[in-house]
């Protein structure tokens, strides 16, 4: 069973709690008052906008789901966090062998899979 190790000193326990609570309060406050981005240049797409309230969307649960997506899309310093996330994925996906073979996999399992559209020169 997981043994519940506690901090040795109250002062460090306080700092630990403060360094969790303060960032979430401060970032939460910033996210409420900062100006929303509308476009993501890195992803080349329009970001979700604040959903409009309606009783139907509230009852169906669409309003809250749309709000979650909007909040994630307009999160403060989103592009900075996205860069870290790319590094996390790259770390998990790094090649374990020294082979230079390149394999293109298309399983048709993902809607984002490459579908084979031709590239045309302008």
């Amino acid at each position: 069973m997981e043994k519940e190790y506690r901090m040795n000193f109250n002062i460090f326990a306080r700092i630990s709690v403060a360094l969790f609570v303060m960032p979430i309060i401060i970032i939460g406050a910033i996210s409420a008052f900062d100006k929303d981005q509308t476009v993501s240049k890195d992803e080349n797409r329009t970001l979700k906008q604040k959903p409009e309230f309606s009783v139907i969307s509230l009852v169906s649960g669409d309003l809250t789901k749309d709000f979650d997506e909007y909040y994630a899309d307009t999160f403060p310093n989103r592009s900075g966090f996205m860069k870290i996330n790319k590094k996390i994925n790259a770390f998990f996906s790094q090649r374990a062998t020294g082979s230079d073979n390149i394999v293109i996999i298309n399983r048709d399992n993902d809607e984002n899979d490459f579908k084979g559209e031709a590239l045309t020169e302008k």
Binding site: S16, E69, A72, R78, F81, I84, N85, I88, N89
Partner: peptide, 17 residues
């Protein structure tokens, strides 16, 4: 704890529902 908070926030920003 701080590192985990940053990594998790990044993972959540970069993923969908």
């Amino acid at each position: 704890n701080l590192i985990l908070l940053i990594l998790c926030t990044s993972a959540l920003v970069g993923s969908s529902y």
